[in-house]
Design a protein around this nucleic acid. Structure first.
Lengths: 148, 148
DNA sequence: AATAATAGTTATAATTTTGTAACCATTATG
DNA sequence: CATAATGGTTACAAAATTATAACTATTATT
């Protein structure tokens, strides 16, 4: 792979990052009591299903104490619950509650509403391109960045 | 536009966001003294050229006092400088210094190095797809999200 | 059985981000 | 000219993130 192409990708990602930050993390704060970190955890659980505390930390590059704080808060709001692992009693597995599922989908819907206004300014072709490009980016980024 | 397509895009963006956060904002902290906010400001200045304090705040959805704090820090590190506007003396224009350019490019290069390891696991076709998809996403997101 | 390693929590502090209100200087409006 | 509006800073407080160390409980290693 040419260095130029990598630089192009890096450049694009650096440009995209603050835009998503602005239109995803920030609006969240006004629509619910969930912090961006809490949203990340819900999203990780939605994708991976049940995860241990350590798994969550690895997926999101969060220090374990931070995961504890966030999960404590989510439990308080009844969005996730703890389950001790029957095979290894050190492990605490976290899973979404029904309410957690609904809350996550509700937040995603709010975000969609928010985006819809802006996306409606695009023509059909641009919408199609964005749908495909975001899907491709998501799949590739997950495959290479969510590891470790 | 069908609601389904918007939901798909929203879903993808929500998935992409934490991955970029993890691989862009977090590594920064270990490689330099620049905070994510500082990096956002440098990136905004790199793209838009000279910007007033208010412009920066609008571009990044940052409250003005926060912009002041970040810019103060960047000035202390000689990465940007203030210039009073000759036409309107209330306005303070911010611009990248030579050192700021270099620092930004250097950080981007570090990020590239970081990504290169992970990107190298992709085959040529996937790399090509990611380069194109990220470019398309960047352009469309900038056009609809960077406004206001 | 003793020791080391792992999973998670607790406690604490530092940093960053966000929000609000008050304030000054300058420009625009009536 | 008086007043309102704008651009920016200052000061302060609250929330969120990050980091570290110490600690308990459990499992793995020797």
């Amino acid at each position: 792979m040419t260095t130029l192409k990598i630089d192009l990708i890096a450049d694009n990602l650096i440009s995209i990052h603050p835009l998503l930050y602005k239109s995803i993390s920030k609006p969240l704060k006004h629509q619910s009591s969930i912090t961006p970190g809490g949203m990340f955890v819900l999203g990780s659980l939605k994708r991976h299903g049940t995860q241990s505390m350590s798994d969550i930390g690895k997926c999101l590059s969060m220090p374990k104490p931070h995961v504890t704080v966030i999960v404590d808060k989510l439990i308080e709001e009844e969005l996730v619950e703890r389950q001790s692992d029957p095979n290894d009693r050190r492990i605490v597995n976290i899973l979404l509650t029904e309410k957690g599922f609904e809350e996550f989908n509700s937040l995603k819907k709010d975000l969609s509403e928010n985006l819809k206004i802006k996306l409606s300014k695009l023509n059909d072709q641009e919408q199609e391109i964005l749908a495909i490009a975001s899907q491709q980016m998501k799949e590739i980024l997950i495959s290479i960045l969510s590891k470790e």
